[in-house]
Write a protein that binds this DNA or RNA. Sequence first.
DNA 1: TTATAAATGTCGTCC
DNA 2: GGACGACGTTTATAA
Lengths: 219, 219
Amino acid sequence: MRLVIATCSVDYSGRLTAHLPMAPRLLMVKADGSVLIHADGGSYKPLNWMSPPCKLVVDDDIWSVTNKAGEELRITLKEIHSDTAYELGTDPGLIKDGVEAHLQELLAEHVQTFGEGFTLVRREYPTAIGPVDLLCRDADGKHVAVEIKRRGEIDGVEQLTRYVELLNRDPLLAPVRGIFAAQLIKPQAQFLATDRGLECVTVDYDLLRGMESDVLRLF
Amino acid sequence: MRLVIATCSVDYSGRLTAHLPMAPRLLMVKADGSVLIHADGGSYKPLNWMSPPCKLVVDDDIWSVTNKAGEELRITLKEIHSDTAYELGTDPGLIKDGVEAHLQELLAEHVQTFGEGFTLVRREYPTAIGPVDLLCRDADGKHVAVEIKRRGEIDGVEQLTRYVELLNRDPLLAPVRGIFAAQLIKPQAQFLATDRGLECVTVDYDLLRGMESDVLRLF
DNA sequence: TTATAAATGTCGTCC
DNA sequence: GGACGACGTTTATAA
């Protein structure tokens, strides 16, 4: 990794065109040739960048970074304040502990969240257009398809609509109702879901987790 | 901006929990206190980070970065290979061109792009499921909803479908047709749009911008 | 402050 | 390589 502190201007031409006036910044050149231009503030997103795979060509005080798609990042250097390089090696990588998968797991074990007498048919119930998060039966034995999101937005309602429509074509399952479950459901999604005849359930993740703890505490 | 090359392990605890095993990495500490941890590869996204506003507390070989929401980024340092700091000042910022807002602006002023005799009713026409980019009337005075994208993909067609369906329920507006306008329309989006009875218009951004220049040149 | 849509989104996964 | 969905999405903008 090469780190250059330099006063520079930058022009990007690709999916859009963008320009950075002359100012002091950090240029980070990674081992794969990618380049990031950071200011001393903002967030983790660089002011400008070129993602790998790409190629850096240095011609005097002009750096030109290009990729296969014909995008170009052109850096014009006025003054270099520092220029250092380090060998870091490949990173072992990040270990994550997920959230959404866990939410589905918890709800699968507590389908009564959706109503008295609910039972689980199966998780990830397969269909031609992808798996339904949960397929349940209500107290009357009727099928219910459940789509689970952390945040309920319009896309999720569309997804559930497609599932319910498809499942209702199966005479062994029909009639199938749909429940849209999320930690937070946005007003527009709520409107669309209601308009489509789908029910909305707001899920309390911490409460569910608490129920899980209670179950564990019994042993 | 402080740049530290160090062998470290990292633990994040907040919206999820994540862990980075001990390895050499770049730690970037910005003037606002935010911290980025970069490996020598990947893209512009750091392996881990804390966004401002946040506070960094250094206790010997443990760095703890916390924010108001109670999230914590804990960095355990084993060995520091380099530690430097620079004063960059505030950045003048990025100037962008070619974004969707500008495209909408240009099309709003040149609705005849969609057909002879087109007039604009209004931009961002409000509905219960969100604003329609452009609502126009054609030469016959019939309403036309226009959805504008930089790149026309399936989700944009879905969006327009919803708008047209909703607008057609309003007897004051019906019948409403839909036009899907984009700089580039993907074949799948084109197919779906046609299947839904929506028209597709490919927009030449540079041409539109040229027309704008022509108008300006008259003054 | 809150909510909503765009993003040079990025990133994984599946096909 | 393309399509699809999640993301500690982040970011900008309007209400």
